[in-house]
Simulated scan of single mutants.
Amino acid sequence: MTASEVSSPRRRSRLVLFLIALVVLIAVGWAGAWVYAANRVEKELDAWIEREAREGRVWACAERGLGGFPFRLQLNCATPTLDTTSGDKLHITTTSARATAQIWSPNAIRAEFTSPARIQNKETGEVFGAHWDSLTMNGVGDMGGRPQRAALQARGLRVEQIEEEDTDASPLASFAELDLESSLVPANAGGPEDVSYSATIKGGSSPILVLFGEKGPVDLSFTGVVTAAADLKPMPLEQRLRAWAAAKGEARITQFTLSSPSVAVTARGTLSLDPQGQVNGNLNLGFAGVQQLAGQLSAAGIIPEGMAPMVGALAMVGQPADVDGRRGVSFPLAFKDGRLNLSGLPVGRVPPAF
């Protein structure tokens, strides 16, 4: 056997040992990087909880654990709770939650929640329950942890009001599908940021609608932008509206469509509030099935029987239009200092928002 033939197996052995050592080093390094990232996430999570508490939202877990090795960061939270200490004072709890993020993209988070949830208004004592087949939330934040985009998706969502005895529940609404999305839009000249939004509801129903003679199902979709609306701190509605009016915010409705077997409504336009809470702006409102709706409301006793023909006559004021694929009418609505004009005719005043 020649010297070269002897050295060849030795070189192969050294190569195999080198590759094994390299794999071990990579595995150890990756494990160390994961542990570092997990510790970083724990610290960032604690800092985020502190920031949220200062904003009036107190989050807690009965038990919290971090896992997901080797490629994910997964936070498991048993019995998560949320208490709002300003605005509407609520206590919200659900069974469990799981939030995951890829280790190379920790600011993109997907959260899944286990049904059911319980919502208590600590001021009024009212208690509500929510059940769902699936409920997920996706969010993307900046490096400081501030949310930039968020999306909520629910399937088979049912909402009910729970009586004091905690044994009876009154159904309030149900949705086959519910999708909500929002994102921050940078404002000009360093002013308050805007929020773009969209929502889709499919297969909605409610006992309240049945009282109005509408069994459903109801579908809803809308998109638009609310300017100067990026302050996410909990606060009373009146305070929020005052702050929004002071910032000269606008609600721009790009598309709004509501449809049921008997009625369809569309809208687009822009609305705002002045410092006195008066509504200003313009809306183009489309309506199909107004006469049938008036008959349903009359039969349900919601409006006097003699008013149904008057509501039908109101449709004569509008212009023929296609409303979500149905024959209907459109009405231009104009708001000026709280005064409402319908197709150029003065109708009355809208109560101030605050």
Rank of each mutant, 00 (worst) to 15 (best):
P309N: 11
R326V: 02
G145T: 03
S196N: 13
M316F: 10
A189Q: 07
P116R: 02
H131K: 12
P192K: 09
D142Y: 07
R64S: 14
E52H: 03
I119A: 04
G204A: 13
E55T: 05
L73I: 15
V347T: 00
R326I: 06
V16S: 00
W59D: 09
W48I: 00
V311I: 15
S205G: 14
W132P: 05
N107I: 09
R349Y: 04
R14Q: 09
R326P: 02
T227C: 06
G156C: 14
A247L: 07
S272M: 09
T93D: 09
L273E: 05
E214P: 04
A229L: 04
A53K: 15
G325H: 06
W34G: 11
G87I: 10
H91E: 11
L19V: 11
G203Y: 06
Q120G: 04
G67C: 00
E52A: 14
R51V: 08
W48C: 00
S221H: 08
S330R: 13
S206A: 02
R327G: 10
I103S: 04
L172R: 13
W244N: 12
A21R: 01
P186R: 10
S134P: 08
M310C: 04
A37T: 03
L157Q: 04
G191W: 00
S115G: 05
T200S: 15
A99C: 14
V210K: 14
P217I: 02
R146L: 12
W132K: 00
F71P: 07
S8V: 11
L82P: 14
E42Q: 11
L271E: 09
E5V: 06
D179Q: 12
A62Q: 11
A353D: 04
G156Y: 09
K122N: 08
F222D: 03
G338L: 01
T2E: 03
F331G: 03
G286P: 05
L220M: 06
N284V: 05
K248E: 15
A154G: 03
S259H: 11
G281C: 14
A37E: 11
T84Y: 06
T84G: 02
A189R: 07
R14N: 01
S86T: 06
T79C: 05
V210I: 13
V323N: 08
I162S: 07
D166A: 15
G224T: 03
G312T: 11
